[in-house]
């Protein structure tokens, strides 16, 4: 699983790098626009320690933001799964809000909360929250009639049991959605750091942009890709463990 994810990333990364270098040599671009391979290597070695800490900082925020989004989406989806006024309101709000580019709200969050951890965390959580919420609502709203019927007609159905049945029957989908939203959490954190934070790899990217230093950007992208792959693999492994413990035939995304 890990070698597959990492090798997929490395293939894409080095294809992109090769394309950049091809453009550089085809159009005789200067090292100022696109640095040579040796420059990239030297810069990467130079910033490796600093960028590694920044990526770990970003990853930590993304993981916490992702967990918050999962918890909040679970609670709201449970409340919104019903065929009642509250459910209708939550579904309408979710469908309308998710259509808005949430990242555009980021400046307001920075103005209100400053450029520290809370802003990064909130933006990371918000960006992966709506896709999670819509999927969770979809899954928890759909009855599993073949299992639920017995509990309904014998008067045993409770909301906890209903949620358990629907979540259990859709565990593969849930794990896919959770894993898929992990990248969004990482994206959200980097975007937040890029816009206004004072730490993290997004902040480092902003500095590199101001310096027009593509070698630093490429070094940052490499580390972001590696650690994002590690996070996705961790979630996939966690998903397999959960499925195994629940007695479901483990299935990889």
């Amino acid at each position: 699983m890990l070698p597959k994810r990492i090798s997929q990333f490395l293939i894409i990364y080095f294809l992109g790098l090769g394309l950049l270098l091809a453009i550089k040599y085809c159009f005789s671009l200067s090292d100022y626009v696109i640095p040579g391979f040796t420059d990239i290597e030297n810069t990467a070695a130079d910033v490796f320690g600093r960028y590694l800490r920044a990526v770990l900082d970003t990853l930590g925020v993304a993981v916490i933001g992702h967990l918050l989004a999962i918890a909040l989406a679970t609670v709201v989806a449970i409340a919104g799964r019903g065929d009642n006024l509250v459910g209708a309101m939550i579904k309408t709000a979710a469908y309308n809000l998710q259509a808005y580019p949430i990242v555009a709200v980021a400046p307001i969050i920075f103005i209100l909360l400053g450029d520290g951890l809370p802003s990064r965390l909130l933006i990371a959580a918000i960006i992966c929250y709506f896709p999670l919420l819509l999927s969770f609502i979809g899954i928890l709203t759909e009855p599993v009639a073949s299992i639920e019927h017995f509990y309904v007609v014998t008067g045993r159905m409770r909301w906890q049991l209903e949620v358990k049945i629907r979540a259990f029957e859709n565990i593969h989908k849930l794990m896919t959605v959770v894993t898929g939203s992990a990248t969004l959490a990482m994206v959200g954190t980097i975007v937040a750091e890029f816009i206004g934070a004072d730490s993290g790899i997004g902040y480092s990217l902003r500095i590199a942009l101001y310096q027009s230093d593509m070698a630093k950007v490429l070094a940052a992208l490499f580390l972001i890709g590696v650690f994002n792959s590690l996070y996705l693999v961790s979630l996939e492994l966690l998903g397999l463990v959960i499925q195994k413990n629940m007695g479901v035939e483990p299935r990889m995304n």
Partner: peptide, 9 residues
């Protein structure tokens, strides 16, 4: 005959 028991136990 299409009914199922939950799979968690």
């Amino acid at each position: 005959n299409t009914e199922r028991l939950p799979g968690w136990s």
